[in-house]
C-alpha cells in the first residue's frame, strides 16, 4: 500500500513537471502553428541561467524566475518579431528549419561558454520530508506547486485579459482577428515571449534535480511533442492531463516491471501517443484549433 501511494506521488510530481515543461511548446504550436524544435534548448538556457545566478550570486533557482522570465520574454519576443514572423507565410518547413537552427546554435553557444561538463544546482533543501511513512521530495514538491501556480496564472491571463483574448482570437482565426483590429504580428511576438519565458522558467525550477549540460534539450523537445499530441494543442487543462498521464504511466511501469521498467516506460509513452493519434487525433481534450475560414 505504501509502495503504491509512494508510486502515485512520484507519478504526480513527475506529471506536474511534464505539464509545466510542455506549456510553452503547446501554446507556441497552438497559437502560431509553429513547432518549436528549439524548445528543449530554451529549457536548457533557463537551467543554465539559474545555475549561473545560483553559483555567482547565491540566488535561489525559484527566486531567480523573477529575473529569468523577463530576460527570456525579450529573447522570445525578438526571435518571433525578427525571424519567425517573416517565415509564417512560407511552408511550415521554413519555421521547422529555423527553430532547428536555433536549437543547434543555442546548444553550441552554451558549450563554448560553459564547456560540456555537467552542472547541478545544489540547493540546501534537496532532501525529503516524511509523511505517514511516505517520502515527499522537497524540491519536486515545490516544482509541483510552482508549476500549478504558473498554469493557473496563464489560464487566467488567456481567459480574462484583453491581451489573452487577443491571443486566443489569433489562434482561432487569424484573418477574423485582423479584421477586428488585432495587430497579429505584435500578438504573435508577445505570445512567443510568454512561451519562451515559461519554458526557461521550467528549466530554471528543475535545475536542482537535473544534470545541466548543453545537449540536454533534445529529449525534452521529444517529450513535449508527445504530451502536446496526447493532451490536445495549446490548452492548459490538456497539458496538465497529458503531463499527468505520461508521468503516471512512466512511473507505474518503471516501478512495477522489474529489470526493464524504466526502458519500458518510455516505450509505453510512445505507444500511447500512437494510439491517441489513431483513435483521437485531436488529443484527449480538444485544444485550441483553427476555425474553418468559410
Amino acid at each position: 500500500m505504501t509502495q503504491l501511494l509512494q508510486t502515485l506521488i512520484n507519478g504526480l510530481l513527475l506529471g506536474g513537471f511534464y505539464a509545466v515543461m510542455v506549456l510553452g511548446f503547446s501554446v507556441f504550436w497552438g497559437v502560431m502553428g509553429v513547432i518549436n524544435l528549439a524548445h528543449g534548448e530554451f529549457l536548457m538556457t533557463g537551467a543554465y541561467l539559474a545555475w549561473l545566478l545560483f553559483t555567482s550570486f547565491s540566488i535561489d533557482p525559484f527566486a531567480s524566475l523573477l529575473l529569468i522570465m523577463p530576460i527570456m520574454f525579450i529573447v522570445g519576443f525578438i526571435m518571433q518579431k525578427f525571424l519567425l514572423n517573416r517565415l509564417l507565410e512560407r511552408p511550415s518547413l521554413a519555421t521547422l528549419l529555423a527553430t532547428f537552427g536555433i536549437s543547434v546554435i543555442l546548444a553550441n553557444i552554451h558549450k563554448i561558454i560553459y564547456s560540456a561538463d555537467p552542472r547541478n544546482v545544489p540547493v540546501s533543501y534537496s532532501g525529503s520530508f516524511e509523511l505517514l511513512g511516505l517520502s515527499l521530495p522537497l524540491v519536486k514538491s515545490l516544482i509541483f506547486v510552482v508549476a500549478l501556480a504558473i498554469m493557473l496564472g496563464l489560464y487566467l491571463f488567456l481567459q480574462y485579459t484583453r491581451l489573452g483574448k487577443a491571443i486566443r482570437a489569433a489562434a482561432q482565426n487569424k484573418n477574423a482577428a485582423k479584421i477586428v483590429g488585432i495587430d497579429i504580428e505584435q500578438v504573435y511576438a508577445i505570445t512567443a515571449g510568454i512561451c519562451i519565458a515559461l519554458t526557461a522558467a521550467a528549466g530554471a525550477i528543475i535545475s536542482p534535480t537535473q544534470a545541466i549540460f548543453p545537449f540536454m534539450g533534445q529529449p525534452f523537445t521529444l517529450k513535449a511533442f508527445t504530451i502536446t499530441v496526447l493532451g490536445g494543442l495549446g490548452q492548459i487543462p490538456g497539458a496538465l492531463l497529458g503531463g499527468m498521464l505520461l508521468g503516471m504511466a512512466e512511473v507505474m511501469v518503471a516501478t512495477y516491471v522489474p529489470g526493464i521498467g524504466t526502458n519500458l516506460g518510455v516505450v509505453i509513452s510512445l505507444l500511447v501517443l500512437i494510439l491517441v493519434l489513431i483513435f483521437r487525433p485531436q488529443g484527449i481534450l480538444t485544444g485550441l484549433k483553427r476555425m474553418p475560414i468559410d
Binding site: 509512494q6 508510486t7 522489474p258 529489470g259 526502458n263
Partner: peptide, 22 residues
C-alpha cells in the same frame, strides 16, 4: 537483489531508487 536498466538520455531515475529503497 535487483538489476535495473535505463535508456540513454533519461531525465528521471527516481522510480529506480524508490523501488530499491523498499
Amino acid at each position: 537483489l535487483a538489476v535495473e536498466t535505463y535508456p540513454k538520455d533519461t531525465a528521471d531515475l527516481s522510480a529506480i531508487t524508490s523501488k530499491f529503497k523498499s
